[in-house]
């Protein structure tokens, strides 16, 4: 089956001059239609940058390499006009903070109608009817009245639902979610996750879900790709990765969960700090923090391999 999303050897470098920052370095990732993949990693690991590359949302100064194909379209080769048609129509995106991602001076209904009319045309009334229908789909109560609300008049959870409605307004094939539950409180988080999962099944969407929360990843994803310092270090079915993480960083992330702290005062942490992206070590970028480090790790970047025959891991000493 041809993949819906096919990212090959993606690299994104910010800044010029003596110290450019390689935010993403050689990421390769493919998603089947209807598949949900979680990109897991800490701040600065390149997960959001990878996500934004799919819509070419980077500032003009960023240098992007590699190829990205979505539903057979070469995203990197799109003309500005074709890119604008592609955004929101084939691939749409929901953001971390819905309060900032919706324009404060227009009503929610107007903003959804704008997106609808942008891609599907039609009259204002038709677009509004479509917005109302979407509001029902994402289960916003008293949808009709809510359409005329301004963003500041709605709660964070409702706004994120509205944001999802807007993202789905033009029947996209791919949904990108950039930590959509991070800014919400815990009870609302799970509702939004369930909603995303449900709509994903209903529409057969391919979803890339960026998160730093492994619990969230387990809730929504079929597969997970763990990123560290701009590279994918481990990738596999969510159950496999949670049950037996192969990469020491993935293991560290799993061990650092609050639920595992039990009665202890302190959480288990990964020693050291994330590396400076502008000054990465020559070998494995996790080497300075790794307990299993050997000489080879310090000189050579370990390639992604499948030692167990399932999933992939970039480590010389997996297990």
């Amino acid at each position: 089956m041809t993949p819906m999303i096919d990212i090959r050897d993606l690299s994104v470098v910010f800044g010029r001059g003596p110290k450019p920052v390689p935010a993403v370095d050689g990421v390769t990732l493919a998603l089947a239609p209807g598949e949900v993949v979680a990109l897991l990693g800490e701040s600065g690991s390149g997960k959001s940058v990878t996500l934004r590359s799919l819509l070419r949302l980077h500032p003009a100064s960023a240098r992007v390499g590699g190829t990205i194909r979505v539903d057979g379209t070469d995203v990197m080769a799109l003309s500005p006009r074709a890119l604008a048609d592609f955004r929101g129509r084939t691939v749409s995106m929901i953001f971390q903070e819905p309060r900032l991602a919706l324009d404060p001076v227009y009503t929610i209904g107007d903003q959804i109608a704008e997106a609808v009319r942008r891609h599907r045309g039609g009259t204002r009334a038709q677009a509004r009817a479509r917005a109302l229908d979407l509001f029902d789909r994402v289960r916003i109560p008293s949808a009709k009245r809510r359409l005329d609300n301004y963003p500041h008049e709605m709660s964070g959870g409702m706004l994120q639902r509205a944001m999802i409605a807007m993202a789905l307004s033009c029947d996209p094939k791919v949904l990108l979610a950039d930590e959509p539950t991070t800014a919400l409180d815990a009870t609302v988080q799970i509702q939004i996750l369930l909603l995303v999962r449900e709509l994903q099944r209903e529409y057969g969407l391919s979803v890339i879900f960026v998160t730093h929360d492994i619990g969230v990843a387990a809730e929504v994803a079929d597969r997970v790709a763990v990123m560290y310092a701009g590279r994918i270090v481990e990738e596999g079915a969510i159950a496999d990765v949670i049950r037996s993480p192969q990469h020491p960083y993935a293991r560290g992330l799993l061990d650092a969960r609050v639920e595992l702290a039990g009665g202890r005062d302190r959480l288990i942490t990964i020693p050291g700090a994330p590396p400076d992206l502008a000054d990465l070590p020559p070998g494995c970028s996790f080497a300075p923090r790794c307990a299993r480090v050997s000489g080879e790790c310090r000189t050579t970047v370990p390639p992604l391999a499948a030692p167990l025959g399932r999933g992939q891991v970039a480590c010389f000493h997996p297990g």
Binding site: L55, L57, A84, D85, F86, R87, G88, R89, S92, M93, F95, A101, L102, D103, E114, A115, R118, H119, M163, M166, A167, C170
Partner: peptide
């Protein structure tokens, strides 16, 4: 950014 991501010209 969100407007750009939704395809606004």
């Amino acid at each position: 950014d969100a407007a750009r991501a939704s395809g606004a010209r």
